[in-house]
Every structure is written in C-alpha cells, then in structure tokens.
Amino acid sequence: MASETSPPVRAVAASRLRRAIAVRIAIYVALTLAAALFLVPLLIMVLTSFKTMDEIRSGTIFDLPHALDWTAWLKAWSGACTGLDCRGISPGFWNSVHILVPSVILSIFCGSITGYALAVWRFRGANAVLLALMVGAFLPYQVIIYPLVKILSFLGIYGSLAGIVTLHIVFGMPLMTMLFRNHFVSIPADLIKAARVDGAGFFRIFFSILLPMSPNMLIVAVILQVTGIWNDFLLGLIFAGQANQPMTVQLNNIVVNAHGTVEYNVNMAATILTALPPLLVYLISGRYFVRGIASGSVKG
C-alpha cells in the first residue's frame, strides 16, 4: 500500500519544494534590489565627493573616481564660501554641537521629570496636561513661528544660542514627556510605595530609583533628540541668529546660495559631513533607534 501511494506524494512534495525555493529566491532578489535603490543616493554622493570637477563634467554620476581625492572634503570642511565667509562648513558643525549638547541634556531632563510627575503622582488634571502636550506634538512649527519670534524678542533671546536651545527644549517637551511618562507608568506602584515607606521623597525616588532603572529609555531619548535636533533646519534658520547657524542651515547656504561655478564635489562632501553625525548615531545604536521611532510613533 505504502509503496503505491508514495510516488505521487513525493512528486507533490518535490514541486512544493521547488516553489518554495523559487519564492525565497524572489524574496532575496526583491530585497537586494530595494536595498540597492536605497543606497544609490548615498553612493553617488560619496562618488561625487571624491572626484575632481573635471571628472564630474566629463563622466557620469556612477563613474568611479580616478583616485581618492580628499580635496573637496577639505574645502567643504574649511574653505567653501557662503557669501563672503569662506570658512567652509566647520563653523556650522561647531554651532550645531553648541546647540545640541545643552538642548539634548535639558530637554531630556525636563521631559523625564515632567513625565515622572505625571505618571507617578497622578494628581487631578494630570491627564489634561498630557492631552495639552499631545497637541504640541502634532503642531506644525509654521503655525506659531511668527508669534514665537515676537515672544523670544520680548524675552531678549531671539537670534541667540539661548533662544534656539530654549525652543528645542520646548518643542522636545511633548515627545520626551510622553516617552518617559509611558515608561514610568509601567513601573509597579509597589516599588514607589516601598520607597515612600523607606522615606524617599519626590526627588530621591526619581534620581535614586527610577532613573537608574531606565538606562534604555535614556538611550532612546538621547538618540531621538540628537538626530532630531541635529537635523532641524527651520528653527535654526529662523531663531539661531547669524552667529549660531546650525550645520544644516549653513549647508543649504553653501549649496543653494553659491555664486559662480557650482562645485558639486564640495557640495556633496559638505552634505555627507552634515549627514554623518546622525548617521553614525543610527549605525551605532541600531536597535535603540528602531525602538525610539517605534515609541515615538505610538505616542505621536
């Protein structure tokens, strides 16, 4: 009996196997193709940045450079001009660093402690505050940008480092508060009670117990804020002032508002330099980055 039924069964199994293999090959081909397409813009930027202008004019974007020529990179960093200023993009880099460090630290501090206050000490109106903050997360900057200029001018910090840092903290509040609030809500209530029986108050519970428990959340928050603030353009453009223009704004000035011959190799090198910090953060942090956008997405 068994020998009579097995050949067709085997044939079916074999054809199913062939189909499965075909499907898997198709999956890998599709994914590889997608990956290649996603890499193209980065690839041509890198290729262009190592070419001389002659090579760029005579060849195509996909031609390999003749040599690893760092001239364009050097010029992008310290020689490219915006108007009369020919210091390259390095001042923008340092401006961005100066904006980034206090903005990230302060926005995470404010967001985490507000989130903690809202999550653990659920006083009346805590949910209303949360809802009001949510609205801030959805609000396009453009809607309020002009009145904000007035407010910051009134406070005397328009066009200053303090001004732009303040705005990054303000606009970081909704996401950071939400992020930490939802994290602290998941911490067992018994733990807070135990700490209160032990005599720990509002701040000690936060600093001695909850913060040490949350290194992952802190990493996620740092990644979100570093990439978000580094990549900001509009706030930097309007509020930072001439002396503090962040790297994205200077990059745009160098590339878009250039006079005379366009130096594509220098432009591309400057673009890559600007993209590099968040890109490195992304590559190093990988999993946390995904967690960050996932948690950011759930809360808005």
Binding site: F38, L42, T48, T248, N267, A275, Y282, V290
Partner: peptide, 20 residues
C-alpha cells in the same frame, strides 16, 4: 539599509536627490 535615510535630515535628503 532600508532605514538609514530616516536618520538624515530633509535638507540632506533634498540635496542628495537634487544631485541625483
């Protein structure tokens, strides 16, 4: 590879595609 563009700013994205 599929997620790396997200780490880049829209300025960088715009300039890269403008070139391409």
């Amino acid at each position: 590879i599929l997620l790396y563009p997200l780490s880049m700013s829209f300025i960088v994205t715009g300039l890269a595609w403008q070139w391409f």
